[in-house]
């Protein structure tokens, strides 16, 4: 019975759910906001995007984001090295927070997206898919890659007046990974995978 009902996330009103045709959008009868859209092959889209996303993620974390020259001193900024550097300097809580929110949680989320979309594609091991989807649902709120990216930009603007800055491969990889995850998490959303999981049940 509840499978045919959808509760609007904006106004909490129940609506009757029905299958959509291509380009159709379901809106809430009460508040008029979008409930769900027609989408096809979501698991295939997520699978192929995250596959490339994981590669971009590794480049973004371990390769230089920027190279900097301040009054003759030269260095490069790599996210993983920065976490280790501040951890060794004694800023344990802050570096652990960055490690989890910028490195571990986004990586685990990306891998969980990859595995769950693959398992949904091949319709295999439902209980493991459920565990993966729960993992994404809980962790996605603690991934702050987008804010960290803006923080890098703000820091660069602050340093532009007294430093020579060269953007490196990590910067491009970071933007690409961020764009992929933005599309998967914000535009498609984990709810779409939950819907496919329910249909396959």
């Amino acid at each position: 019975m509840t499978k045919n009902i959808i509760v609007c996330p904006h106004c909490e009103s129940p609506n009757i759910k029905r299958a959509l045709n291509p380009n159709e959008v379901a809106v809430c009868a009460k508040c008029g906001k979008v409930l769900y859209k027609y989408e096809s092959n979501i698991e295939l889209k997520i699978f192929s995007l995250v596959l490339s996303g994981v590669i971009f993620f590794i480049i973004a974390m371990f390769f230089p984001i920027i190279k900097i020259n301040i009054i003759g001193y030269e260095d490069s900024f790599r996210i993983f090295n920065a976490i280790l550097f501040l951890f060794n300097k004694g800023y344990i809580i802050i570096s652990l927070f960055v490690l989890f929110s910028v490195f571990l949680f986004p990586f685990i989320c990306a891998v969980a997206y990859f595995m769950s979309s693959f398992l949904l594609l091949v319709k295999f091991n439902k209980s493991f898919v459920k565990k993966l989807l729960i993992l994404i649902t809980i962790m996605k709120d603690w991934c702050f890659l987008d804010i960290f990216f803006i923080a890098i930009l703000v820091s660069l603007i602050k340093m532009f007046s007294y430093a020579d800055i060269i953007f490196d491969i990590g910067f491009i990889a970071y933007i690409l990974f961020l764009s992929i995850m933005f599309y998967i998490v914000k535009i498609i959303g984990v709810h779409s995978l939950w819907e496919i999981y329910e249909k396959n049940m």
């Binding site: 550097f85 802050i94 702050f144 923080a151 890098i152 820091s155």
Partner: peptide, 30 residues
């Protein structure tokens, strides 16, 4: 979560600028 911006800016600045004669060191307010 956007209030984390300041914490991350300090993190990035401190990890980039740590030379002998010019450095940025996070303080306890972070």
């Amino acid at each position: 979560p956007w209030s984390l911006l300041d914490v991350f800016v300090v993190f990035v600045m401190a990890s980039i600028i740590h030379f002998q004669y010019i450095s940025i060191i996070p303080q306890k307010a972070v």
